[in-house]
């Protein structure tokens, strides 16, 4: 059954040393192949831990984790070839130009020569960076850095793309472009796991969302259908607040 999902977790548990409550408390995450899935959660709900576990960056205590039917961590080297991670931080080499960054990172993914050059040119064009590609990253605006950061995760044409808040700190134009391209990528067959604080973004582009709280999924479904099934909530944000509460969630545990 798990083989039908691009990302599948069952009873996933993770407790950090010295913390009384588990960060993940039996997380069942089912992301169908080819979907654009929005994972929404307040701070401290376990989003980043979930991403780290999916990408093999952290160990988990209990449960099953499968990416495209491949188990974590036993098939991690195979999994790394099919996933693309876009971290929240701008993970680029500041002394290099945008194009050089993409070529270096592409080379690390094993994409080389003419194929890499073509792919870099194509992505730079799609994300409106072709004219600034040869300038050092240090001269880029926040939105341009975000876009290059995103492109770096797409160079090897990943089957599954995981994005951790890719639109944080960007202007409306850059955000719009990013969201449009993510939707296009999804239509081209890439499964996208989109993690964001901006609920309206998820509502706009995602065909499926999961609301996470207390280390597990509390509600999941199509955003439009979810809103319909809760007529008392005028939008996804209202539903989100209803389920997770309005109190601040940042903790120092």
């Amino acid at each position: 059954m798990s083989d039908n999902f691009a990302i599948y977790t069952e009873g996933l548990k993770k407790r950090y040393k010295g913390k009384s409550n588990p960060t993940l408390n039996g997380l069942d995450l089912r992301i169908p192949d080819g979907s654009l899935y929005g994972l929404l959660a307040p701070n401290g709900a376990g989003k980043t831990t979930t991403i780290d576990i999916l990408c093999g960056l952290k160990r988990f205590d209990e449960g099953i984790v499968k990416i495209d039917g491949l188990g974590v961590p036993s098939k991690l080297s195979d999994i790394k070839r099919i996933i693309g991670l876009v971290p929240q931080e701008i993970a680029l080499f500041p002394m290099l130009t945008g194009r050089e960054n993409l070529k270096v990172i592409g080379g690390m993914y094993g994409v080389e020569g003419g194929v890499l050059n073509e792919r870099v040119d194509e992505l730079l064009y799609r994300f409106g960076l072709e004219n600034s590609a040869d300038r050092p990253i240090t001269q880029y605006s926040g939105g341009m850095k975000r876009r290059i950061n995103l492109l770096a995760g797409l160079l090897h044409k990943p089957k599954i793309l995981i994005l951790d808040e890719p639109t944080v700190g960007v202007d409306a134009q850059s955000r719009n472009l990013i969201l449009e391209e993510l939707a296009k990528l999804n239509k081209e067959g890439t499964t996208v796991l989109f993690i964001s604080h901006y609920l309206e973004e998820a509502e706009t582009i995602c065909n499926r969302v999961g609301l996470m709280d207390g280390g597990k999924i509390v509600l999941e479904g199509n955003p439009t259908e979810l809103a319909k099934s809760h007529p008392e909530c005028k939008n996804l944000e209202a539903l989100y607040f209803k389920l997770t509460g309005k109190q601040m969630r940042d903790t120092y545990e």
Binding site: C55, G56, L57, S77, K80, R81, I83, G84, L85, P87, Q88, E89, I90, A91, L92, F93, I105, M108, Y109, G110, A152, G153
Partner: peptide, 14 residues
Amino acid sequence: EGGSFTRLLTMPCS
């Protein structure tokens, strides 16, 4: 700290 490490670790190398 900067995130490059996270990206590097998700690449197909040990």
